[in-house]
């Protein structure tokens, strides 16, 4: 993806996170905890598991629909994610050629199974992270982290990072445009120009930090960033967490898919 596309995709995700749907209104702590539970459960399946992973797609589908998040957008983001997991996973079919089963005359090797399993886990885990941030504003996530025991100093600077992410990205974008407009062929795109560009951006950033610090001092900053927002965990939040835990547990400990499959085979033999 180009600079602009990446930037606007992040911006769109950020805008979505300020929605007002049922899912957006849940307490951020609950969503963070539920997401972590989801991830651990998905990851805990062994390397060759496939069918048991399928019911887990219910979660992203619920978040997408109840949260009013455009599915195509999230899918595109998943596809463009750095493909490290898949690069490593694709070796499995080559390395593990033991035939496990034959489906419709096609021999299926253990390597393909484990690759498919990695692929499913990849989509589920990547989707979970994206959906968390699409349904929870980043400041909300930071509040959750602070409440979950992360050091205030860390959370404060994380909030600064978020606040200036877009400001600096736009600055970088303006600088790159200025470079590209006067670049012909490959000259000017090399390391020397890049280093100076980043150097200038760095100096501007430090000056900006200085101005921000001045603005903070002017408004009485004394080393601690006070925040006024009391999240109260409501009944709805607890119900959500409980439902998520029960479903996750059910999907983890019962072979739901196979059960349904056998049921179907029993009904229509």
């Amino acid at each position: 993806m180009t600079f602009d596309e990446r930037y606007f995709a992040v911006g769109r995700l950020d805008r979505l996170s300020y929605g007002r749907s049922l899912i957006h209104r849940l307490d951020p702590r609950v969503k963070v905890v539920a997401t972590l539970l989801f991830l651990i459960t998905v990851i805990s399946f062994p390397p060759h598991e496939i069918v048991a992973l399928l019911p887990f797609f219910l979660f992203p589908v619920l978040l997408l629909t109840l949260g009013g998040i455009p599915a195509g957008f999230i899918l595109r983001k998943i596809v463009f994610v750095s493909p490290f997991a898949l690069t490593i996973g694709i070796f499995n079919p080559v390395l593990d050629t033991r035939t496990v089963t034959v489906i419709a005359g096609l021999p299926i090797s253990a390597g393909w199974l484990s690759f498919l399993s990695i692929l499913l886990k990849f989509v589920l885990t990547t989707g979970a992270a994206l959906l968390l941030v699409a349904t929870t504003s980043f400041p909300g996530i930071c509040h959750a982290l602070r409440r979950l025991g992360f050091p205030p100093l860390f959370v404060s600077q994380l909030l600064f990072l978020y606040r200036y992410l877009f400001v600096l990205a736009e600055e970088a974008m303006r600088m790159t445009r200025a470079r590209d407009m006067r670049t012909f062929g490959r000259r000017g795109l090399g390391v020397a120009v890049f280093v100076r560009l980043v150097g200038v951006l760095f100096l501007r950033t430090v000056d900006r930090a200085e101005r921000i610090y001045g603005a903070m001092l002017s408004r009485g900053f004394r080393g601690d960033i006070p925040m006024l927002r009391k999240f109260r965990i409501s009944f709805g939040d607890l119900a959500f967490l409980a439902a998520a835990t029960i479903l996750l547990g059910a999907f983890k400990f019962y072979p739901v898919t196979e059960g349904i499959g056998r049921l179907a085979q029993g009904v229509w033999p």
Partner: peptide, 17 residues
């Protein structure tokens, strides 16, 4: 540079807090 907090509310509340 002046609005350094993550939301408008937090920013305006920064001084009074």
């Amino acid at each position: 540079d002046q609005l350094f907090m993550p939301t408008v509310f937090d920013d305006v509340a920064f001084g009074p807090l």
